[in-house]
């Protein structure tokens, strides 16, 4: 069996006086499909920010694909980060650019600065970008301006950007919270399907518990920054869920 995708040991994150995460112990094996659930403010986004290296833990240790990102130089850290693709609730695309540029932005880590600069003037790699967009079902939008697309299409562009990056891990932070239920389900199916096809590790934070139980192997439950649930999806009971989402419990320190 290959090395784990993630190993978190006693990981915690403080932001000023507030404690966003505490004492998280989790191991994720490659190819696993993990859903992270919990009420708003439980620390789901903070957890994902530790997993993609946007933040480093203030306590404990986070090993990403075998590396402790906090110990690496900026350059080596970027090399590891290129293997982690992240999809965001608000997409974080550049609306003023054409879709092809937003897709190619995923592989900027591999391009030289000159190539990146020139591509903005005269787009490079249109055909590969179109192929990737085909995988998410919007190949015809390759030259459209990104802010002209609907919300669902924009989230597909964001996923295409991650695919262009060709990552070992895909993280998605509330990828469907800005979409209507039907489009949301389609996006989750797209992500899990990609994970099955390419063996990519998938970690998705979700509000919708039904989708989490339905479409993922494993469910992590967060409450007030602590891990309160870590079970295969099939073993999660309504009593355990009530615990995770109990607002009374969440108010306790």
């Amino acid at each position: 069996m290959s090395a784990p995708a993630y190993v978190l040991r006693g990981a915690g994150l403080r932001r000023g006086a507030t404690r966003a995460l505490a004492e998280i112990d989790v191991t994720v094996t490659p190819g696993e499909r993990v859903a992270v659930i919990g009420p708003s403010g439980a620390g789901k986004s903070s957890l994902l920010s530790l997993l993609n290296g946007a933040n480093h833990p203030t306590e404990g240790e986070v090993r990403v694909l075998g590396h402790d990102l906090a110990q690496l130089s900026a350059r080596s850290r970027r090399t590891v980060q290129r293997r982690i693709g992240t999809v965001y609730q608000q997409f974080h695309l550049v609306g003023q650019l054409r879709v092809v540029h937003n897709v190619n932005a995923g592989q900027l880590g591999d391009w030289s600065t000159w190539r990146a600069l020139w591509s903005l003037v005269s787009p490079r790699d249109i055909d590969p970008a179109r192929e990737i967009l085909g995988r998410v079902g919007i190949a015809d939008k390759v030259l459209a301006r990104t802010d002209r697309l609907s919300g669902g299409e924009q989230q597909r562009v964001a996923i295409a950007r991650v695919l262009a990056q060709d990552p070992s891990v895909i993280l998605a932070d509330e990828p469907i919270a800005s979409l209507d239920p039907e489009r949301g389900k389609a996006v989750v199916d797209l992500l899990t399907g990609l994970s099955r096809t390419y063996g990519t590790t998938l970690v998705v934070s979700l509000h919708d518990v039904g989708i989490a139980l339905d479409r993922f192997d494993r469910v992590l439950g967060l409450r007030a920054g602590r891990l309160v649930l870590d079970l295969p999806a099939a073993e999660v009971t309504s009593g355990l869920l009530a615990d995770t989402f109990s607002t009374d419990a969440a108010r306790q320190p």
């Binding site: 920010s49 970027r78 992240t86 650019l97 540029h101 932005a105 900027l108 880590g109 991650v162």
Partner: peptide, 14 residues
């Protein structure tokens, strides 16, 4: 930046 892109190129594209 979280996807491992250098700051200069991230500014150029985003």
């Amino acid at each position: 930046l979280a996807a491992g892109v250098s700051p200069a190129r991230a500014f150029l594209y985003a």
